[in-house]
Amino acid sequence: MTSESFIKRDDGGVLHPIKIHIKVDGETEEVQVGVMTARQIIIDLAKRDPAQYYLVQIHGQERISYQDNPGQEIPLHNGMKFQTVLLGPTPVSDITGMKTGAAVFADGLTAAGYKPEALPGRADHLVFDYRVETGSKAGIDVKIGLVIPGDFPVGVPSGPYVTPQVFPIKTDGAHPHGAIHESQAAVFAEALGGKWEYWSRPCNDWNAGRKTVTAYLSHIWRLWDSQ
């Protein structure tokens, strides 16, 4: 498919492309075409493999999935939001010792509109308020905790800590309803109170995409979407 470019004339009659700004996996992208297919957005903008991901358009609490029709043409306009979603289950991780190094991650959260705070005496343990946008728990407010590796963005958190406990504790199994632990979230519960749970959910495609905080937030979005 050849995407149709949007153009306009200036006062001198010269044609110029119209730039459209959309968000893909939390990143602002500028395009100069009025139509793209879901597959093109995955490849050209998200820089992901369409054999492993499908595209979802987000509009408030509504979503439009292009999983069954990746070749569908999508008319674009400013402010549209898209999310790539991994096909298949998310494997369970094996967390080991985390290091400090959360400053760059905290800056990224702040830039994304969140207000991260570190646990007292634990600069690598960040907490922020989060409204769930998708999945079976869409619309609820939670707190998310993350332990940030010292080498971020090379390394990435092994999974989120969540309060309140929105899903039953189930230490065996895998995503979406397994590998949910209470004991591993004790440090957050002791520091902040309440009941916390840890979801062992690695971001296994981290090295294949953009290593940014917004990319990790997209991973979090996909976890909620598939719960």
Rank of each mutant, 00 (worst) to 15 (best):
V104F: 09
A106N: 05
K99R: 15
N69V: 06
K115N: 10
Q72K: 10
V92Y: 13
Q61P: 06
A103G: 02
T90V: 11
G26Y: 10
Q57C: 03
E30W: 11
S93E: 13
I18G: 01
R39G: 00
V92G: 00
A118C: 05
Q32A: 10
S65R: 07
A46C: 02
L109N: 05
L45R: 06
V14H: 15
P70L: 01
R63S: 14
G97A: 09
S65N: 07
E30C: 06
A102W: 15
R48D: 00
P50S: 03
D107I: 03
N78I: 01
D68H: 13
E117T: 15
G34E: 06
L15A: 10
V56D: 14
L86H: 12
M36N: 04
Q61S: 13
E62F: 11
T84P: 00
V24F: 13
A111T: 03
H16K: 04
T96Q: 14
G34S: 09
I41W: 14
L15E: 15
H59D: 11
P17I: 01
H16P: 00
N78D: 14
Y53N: 01
G34Y: 15
L76F: 14
D68Y: 12
V24Y: 13
L109F: 08
T28N: 09
M80S: 04
I20G: 03
V14C: 06
V56F: 10
T90W: 15
Y54Q: 03
R39H: 12
V31H: 08
Q67K: 13
S65T: 06
Q40A: 06
Q61K: 14
T84W: 07
L87K: 15
P116S: 08
T37H: 09
M98G: 08
K23C: 03
I58Y: 13
L76N: 07
G79P: 02
E29K: 10
A38F: 11
A103C: 01
Q61G: 07
F82Q: 00
A102T: 00
I95D: 07
P70S: 03
Q52G: 03
A102M: 05
I18E: 12
M36G: 00
F105D: 01
E29I: 06
V33N: 10
D68C: 01
I95L: 12
P50V: 04
A38P: 01
D49C: 02
I43M: 08
G97H: 14
T100C: 03
A38H: 08
V31A: 04
G108Q: 06
H16E: 10
G71K: 09
I64F: 12
K47G: 04
M80D: 02
A103R: 15
Y114W: 05
P91I: 05
G113E: 11
V85G: 02
P50G: 02
V92M: 07
G88T: 05
T37R: 04
V31Y: 09
Q52D: 12
K81S: 04
Q61A: 12
I74D: 01
D107S: 09
R63C: 05
L76Y: 15
V35R: 14
G113L: 06
F82N: 00
I74T: 04
A46H: 05
K99H: 15
G88N: 06
Q40H: 11
T96D: 11
Q83R: 09
